Computed example of a mutant assay.
Amino acid sequence: MHTESPTPSPRPRILITGSNGQVGSELKELLGKEEGFETFFLDRKQLPLEQTLIIQDILGMYEPDIIIHAAAYTAVDKAESEPELADTVNHLATEEIAQYCRMHGAKLLAISTDYVFDGHSNEPLKEDAPTSPLNIYGLTKWKGEQAIQKWAPENIIIRTSWVYSAYGNNFVKTMIRLLHEREELSVVHDQIGSPTYARDLAQTMVDIIKAAKWHPGIYHYSNEGQLSWYDFAVNIQELIGTTCRITPIPTSQYPTLAKRPAYSLLDKSKIKRTFNVQVPFWLDSLKEMIASEH
């Protein structure tokens, strides 16, 4: 008697936007070690988010089961003078992606930001805390969140903060360079939050797509702990060992085009509870990233 072996189920197709960004680059490394998925990494040339009319056609070429939307317009100060471009990329392009997911039954895992909050809280922010962005970047990301929730019911949105990585441009890499170049630096001490090592966030996202059950909703993720940008800079210096003098200053002495929230510490209890996520302490992750740089 001849029995045919069952056809193996096809591997889920995962499409990642923003493949050259901080989180996208980390996802490329981590998903490259996973054999259970078929992955497609699209950069801004392959998926030009400012060209909203062609986004759904491009996505349709790959027929993804899951889209990880890591691409964004993230130049926070520049967004103040380019509000239309920031809105197109962070809001309208995200809406196109969400509509594609709705029409084709794909799941959407998207990254958002602590900048959807105004910073007036004095306790860690839960997912249902009132949103009130202070700047164009935060507003466009919030409008993107709204579009996702309207069109893509099977969505997971992860708000994160102060992202850094060995890839791309970020506070840690800038500090390492300036601490070697300068004798004195002034760093803001009255903006409180927690940094996020993009490798940790990417690993959490991989764990979520590998989880037995998909739990749609908004989640918060950053590394554990609470600090200011000044504290962050001091610890970077201690790890790399320079003699640059770092002076703490108030935000009022460091004017920027875009206002920043004074307090944007995220409460991570929901993501830890729902997906059994282990969140590393910020200093442990900083040490890991700096060790990878040297």
Rank of each mutant, 00 (worst) to 15 (best):
G36C: 08
D284M: 09
S252W: 10
L53F: 11
W282I: 00
R245Y: 10
G36N: 13
P280A: 12
F41W: 09
F41H: 14
F40P: 02
L85C: 06
Q237A: 02
H180E: 14
L85R: 14
A98P: 06
P48F: 15
S112W: 11
W142M: 15
K173D: 06
I158F: 09
A110W: 12
P6M: 12
S194K: 06
R44S: 12
L283Q: 12
Y137I: 02
F281H: 14
P280R: 14
K150G: 00
A211L: 09
Q99P: 00
T243G: 06
L178C: 02
Q203C: 06
Q191R: 06
A233Y: 11
E26Q: 15
I16Q: 13
S222Y: 11
D128E: 15
D200P: 05
P124I: 10
Q237C: 02
L47R: 07
W151K: 04
D57P: 00
A211Q: 12
S25C: 05
R159S: 12
Q146T: 07
S19Q: 10
S132R: 14
E184Q: 15
L49K: 10
R11G: 00
P153I: 03
K107S: 06
E80R: 02
L15F: 09
P48E: 14
Q146F: 02
S252V: 11
T196P: 07
K126G: 07
S81F: 01
G138H: 09
Y219C: 03
I209R: 08
E82H: 02
D87H: 14
D77E: 07
R245L: 07
I236Y: 02
I209K: 06
I246R: 07
W162R: 04
A129G: 02
T251A: 13
K268C: 15
E293T: 09
L134K: 13
Y254R: 13
I97C: 06
E34G: 01
T243E: 14
K210W: 11
V76P: 01
S121F: 14
H120T: 15
E95D: 11
A258G: 05
Y167I: 01
K107Q: 08
E123P: 00
T52W: 11
E26K: 11
Q99C: 00
L227T: 05
I136Y: 02
I290W: 08
P8D: 11
Y62S: 04
G119D: 03
S121N: 09
K126L: 03
V206D: 07
N20S: 13
G24P: 02
Q203P: 04
T160H: 13
P130M: 07
Y167V: 01
L53M: 10
E34L: 01
Y219S: 09
H294L: 04
L47G: 03
L134S: 09
C101M: 04
T204I: 15
E82V: 01
E29L: 09
K107M: 06
V172G: 01
Q237N: 15
K173Q: 12
P48T: 12
L30M: 10
T113K: 08
T251P: 00
Y62Q: 07
I148S: 04
L53V: 11
Q51S: 13
E38R: 15
E29A: 08
Y167G: 00
A212R: 15
D57C: 00
W229D: 01
I209A: 04
L59H: 10
V234N: 03
E4K: 12
G105Y: 06
L15M: 13
K213A: 13
A98Y: 08
A106K: 05
L185E: 03
